[in-house]
Amino acid sequence: TRVETATETAWISLVTALHLVLGLSAVLGLLLLRWQFPAHYRRLRHALW
């Protein structure tokens, strides 16, 4: 049971790290898009909202 718990903890930390990385890359990508294509971003936002 001790090994299982350790594996579970490792998986949880791995998944958390993955989610953090994905979230950060998504935010960075959005910022980059907004910085590179302001007109396109505004049009996209206008279409979405």
Rank of each mutant, 00 (worst) to 15 (best):
T1K: 11
T1V: 13
T1L: 14
R2T: 12
R2Y: 13
R2F: 11
R2A: 11
R2L: 12
V3A: 05
V3T: 06
V3Y: 03
V3H: 05
V3D: 05
E4F: 13
E4S: 13
E4V: 14
E4M: 14
T5W: 00
A6Q: 11
A6G: 12
A6W: 07
T7F: 11
T7M: 14
T7D: 08
T7K: 14
T7R: 13
E8I: 01
E8S: 02
T9W: 11
T9F: 09
T9R: 11
T9M: 12
T9V: 13
A10L: 01
W11D: 00
W11Y: 13
W11K: 04
W11R: 01
I12P: 04
S13R: 05
S13V: 13
S13Q: 06
S13N: 05
L14G: 04
V15E: 05
V15I: 11
V15M: 09
V15W: 04
T16Y: 05
T16P: 07
A17V: 09
A17R: 04
A17F: 07
A17S: 07
L18F: 12
L18N: 03
L18Q: 05
H19I: 01
H19C: 05
H19Y: 07
H19W: 03
L20P: 05
L20E: 04
V21K: 01
V21D: 02
L22A: 13
L22F: 06
L22Q: 05
G23R: 02
G23N: 04
G23T: 11
L24M: 09
L24K: 04
S25A: 13
S25R: 04
A26F: 13
A26M: 11
A26Y: 06
A26I: 09
V27G: 10
V27C: 11
V27N: 03
V27E: 06
V27T: 10
L28S: 06
L28W: 01
L28C: 05
L28G: 03
L28K: 06
G29P: 05
G29V: 14
L30A: 13
L30S: 09
L31W: 12
L31Y: 13
L32R: 06
L32W: 01
L32M: 15
L33H: 08
R34T: 08
W35T: 15
W35N: 15
W35V: 15
W35R: 15
W35I: 15
W35M: 15
Q36P: 14
Q36W: 15
Q36E: 15
Q36H: 15
F37C: 10
F37H: 00
P38V: 08
P38N: 13
P38E: 13
A39E: 15
A39I: 07
H40L: 09
Y41A: 15
Y41G: 11
Y41W: 12
R42T: 15
R42Y: 13
R42M: 07
R42A: 11
R43N: 09
R43D: 05
R43Q: 08
R43I: 10
L44G: 00
R45C: 08
R45K: 12
R45N: 03
R45D: 01
R45L: 11
H46C: 11
H46L: 08
H46K: 06
H46M: 09
H46W: 00
A47L: 09
A47P: 09
A47E: 00
A47Q: 08
A47H: 13
L48K: 09
L48R: 07
L48D: 08
W49C: 07
W49T: 00
W49F: 00
W49S: 00
W49K: 11
